[in-house]
């Protein structure tokens, strides 16, 4: 309790100091936050329409994944409805980079990793085929997601999905996924 409350934040800020940050967020991914960040990212579409729209589409899928499936929920909220996670979007002169992270159960992590690895081996036509195959499988009202979000993210991005995970304990891991979208040349 003696440690200063702001110490971690200063370190965190310093590590991100040399990037042009569009959004940095950690917390519950509720619908209002999604709309706010989504609008902010959407405005980028004015600068570079095609890549801006792709960035928006990628953001929406990854943010909804956290909303719906993050293993961590906000403890102080009476209804533990929204998933907690983190998201950074920054830009370089040539691309947008979006990284998201959230807690997942260890057994789920393995499935996600396998799916991402499969996605990364596929070309565009095979990705479309995979998307159709997943989308055609059984739909249930309680499963809100399309189960095809990650495939759509890969279709919208210009580089393989970069995934990483760090095991926290026997139950949970922190999973991150990073996506790059190239800006169109001016």
């Amino acid at each position: 309790m003696e440690e200063k409350k702001n110490k971690g934040l200063i370190d965190l800020y310093s590590t991100m100091n040399d990037q042009d940050i569009i959004v940095y967020y950690k917390g519950p991914f509720d619908d209002v936050i999604l709309a706010e960040i989504g609008n902010k990212i959407r405005k980028k579409a004015f600068d570079s329409p095609k890549s801006g729209k792709r960035l928006f589409a990628v953001f929406m899928e990854l943010a909804q994944n956290i909303s719906l499936y993050s293993y961590e929920k906000n403890r102080l909220e009476s209804v533990g409805k929204w998933g907690v996670g983190t998201l950074v979007v920054y830009e370089t002169p040539t691309s947008y980079v979006l990284t998201s992270g959230n807690m997942v159960k260890n057994d789920v992590l393995e499935q996600i990793q396998k799916k991402c690895e499969e996605i990364n081996t596929l070309d565009r036509e095979s990705l479309r085929e995979m998307k159709r195959r997943y989308r055609s499988s059984e739909i249930t009202p309680d499963h809100k997601g399309g189960n095809i979000g990650l495939i759509q993210v890969a279709l919208k991005s210009d580089a393989p999905l970069e995934i990483d995970a760090k095991q926290i304990d026997d139950e949970r891991s922190f999973f991150t996924i990073s996506v790059s979208i190239f800006k169109e040349p001016n």
Binding site: A57, M60, R135, S136, I139, G146, I148, G149, Q152
Partner: peptide
């Protein structure tokens, strides 16, 4: 001009 993947699934149905 835009739909997310959850919508696309319902649209397919």
């Amino acid at each position: 001009n835009y739909f997310n993947t959850s919508s696309s699934r319902a649209l397919l149905e």
